[in-house]
Design a protein around this nucleic acid. Structure first.
Length: 461
DNA sequence: TCTGGGGTCCTAGGACCC
DNA sequence: TCTGGGGTCCTAGGACCC
């Protein structure tokens, strides 16, 4: 959505050669490759569901889609539309393995590869004409499709154009298992074949607002002046839409990916109202998040807890700590306090609980954090050692083997309160009053850790 | 027929600093 | 005591994507 903008630069921007490689019903393909005798023989295949009974369709085979089944639809509803469909769970590990394989193949074929999601990759072939001996973009796309199929067994569809957005829309035309390239100079004509809702980034809410003004097709929106778009949808969105409708898109393709946040959430099979049960789940979610952070060498400063009530109201609370952290000992007490706040504000049985860490920075491990030895900021040396030990045990014996229970007993003061008084306040039921001194060790008190300073004055750089 | 899990980006108000 | 404006950070919420 964000343009790498110099707004005036793009109308005359030089010809670019962009492909979007999109794996055909990726999860279904992976499920079939992983279980050739079962899922592999089932034309009516549905991936998703979830044992909770509250699942939705992640991906459906084309045969199932004929019945009107779409991804995102509750599995129960999908089964009503297509009772004979076979439902299999999401093969998470395999999906990311195949995704990496596809990406590796693409990186051998294109100088710039950007992963837009597990199953979508942008390629920028601008400037490769000589290398490919003047091969047309369409011919390159077919060649790439064949090579990916041969090396990974994954079938892809490929869209091509001079702009990222157009390549993406072209990929829709290419499905299944094909190639579609928007001819150079034919961008505007191509756009006019679509309704506004087909423009990536135009979702249900904007579609409603557009329809209220009588705009449904791209053609309807072309005569609308930019000033009106801005008046209706705001500066940023208005300008954005004005340009998209004309097929203008100056966003670049950036090699690799930059992670902005890591999160984990769970929808329960039955709503949970018990605070201790929620905290136990919160700890598991926290562990999963911090483990991912450590695996990728990230630390983060902002911790967010997400709670979905039984009436589907979704609320969040977040808090930024002064120094980037990635251990349970640093993250969990904050998360627990945030959960307490959310539950105080509105107490309903919970349907979903989630934890996220954002404001990420890379490469702190053992480095800069050491600049603050003995201070109460960031992860303590002990926390990090503990995390490493837990990680290696989990690697060997499985996720749930080690749950450092002592963390559950720890407390943190309410981040929203500047000056805590022990035992005070309805604000932080989890916070005060349950200190267990027997847990504390000499040295820097982990309880006074990184989780406070609401004024943020201790912020790094 | 009740609505997953992983993300990204934008907005808007308030705090705070200069 | 009235009056500023700009910039940045934090937090909550919402739209959107696959």
């Amino acid at each position: 959505m964000t343009e790498a903008s110099t707004p005036s630069a793009s109308p005359t921007s030089p010809d670019r050669r962009i492909l979007l490689v999109d794996c055909d019903m990726f999860f279904v393909q992976v499920a079939r490759l992983e279980d050739p005798e079962g899922a592999g023989r089932e034309p009516l295949l549905l991936v998703g569901g979830s044992p909770t009974g509250r699942g939705v369709v992640t991906s459906a085979s084309y045969e199932v889609r004929k019945f009107g089944v779409r991804s995102g639809m509750p599995t129960a509803q999908a089964l009503r539309l297509c009772p004979d469909a076979k439902v299999v769970g999401v093969p998470r590990g395999s999906v990311s393995r195949y995704s990496k394989e596809v990406r590796r193949v693409l990186e051998d074929l294109s100088p710039v590869v950007q992963a837009a999601s597990v199953d979508e990759f942008y390629l920028d072939l601008t400037g490769t004409e000589r290398m490919f001996h003047g091969e047309s973009l369409e011919a390159s796309a077919w060649r790439i499709r064949e090579e990916v199929l041969e090396k990974t067994r994954i079938s892809v569809s490929i869209g091509g154009a001079t702009r990222k957005m157009l390549a993406k829309m072209a990929a829709g035309r290419a499905k299944p298992a094909g190639v579609f390239v928007v001819p150079e100079g034919g961008e505007q004509a191509f756009m006019c074949e679509f309704e506004l809702r087909h423009i990536p980034g135009v979702g249900p809410s904007l579609v409603r607002a557009l329809r209220d003004r009588g705009l449904v097709r791209v053609e309807d929106a072309l005569p609308v002046e930019e000033s009106f778009m801005v008046e209706w949808f705001g500066e940023s969105r208005g300008r954005w839409l004005y340009r998209k409708v004309r097929g203008l898109d100056s966003s670049r393709i950036v090699h690799g990916e930059v992670r902005k946040s890591v999160s984990s959430e769970r929808t329960f099979s039955r709503d949970i109202d018990d605070g201790e049960a929620l905290e136990a789940i919160l700890l598991k979610l926290t562990r999963s998040v911090t483990r991912t952070l450590r695996k990728r060498g990230f630390h983060g400063r902002t911790i967010t807890v997400k709670l979905r009530d039984n009436d589907f109201t979704t609320r969040q609370a977040s808090h930024s700590v002064p120094e980037p952290v990635n251990t349970d000992a640093s993250v969990f007490p904050v998360a627990r306090t945030l959960l307490g706040q959310l539950r105080d504000r509105r107490r309903r049985p919970a349907r979903l609980l989630g934890v996220g860490v954002s404001n990420l920075s890379e490469g702190f491990e053992g480095g800069q954090m050491g600049l603050f030895p003995g201070t109460d900021e960031g992860d303590s040396e002990r926390d990090r050692d503990l995390s490493r030990a837990v990680d290696s045990l989990s690697d060997r014996f499985g996720e749930d083997t080690v749950l450092p229970g002592r963390i559950l007993g720890r407390s943190v003061r309410d981040p929203s309160r500047p000056d805590p008084k022990p035992g005070s306040g309805p604000g932080a039921p989890s916070g005060t009053g349950d200190e267990s001194p027997s847990d504390s060790k000499p040295g820097p008190d982990p309880n006074s850790g990184p989780h406070s300073t609401p004024d943020g004055t201790g912020s790094p750089k």
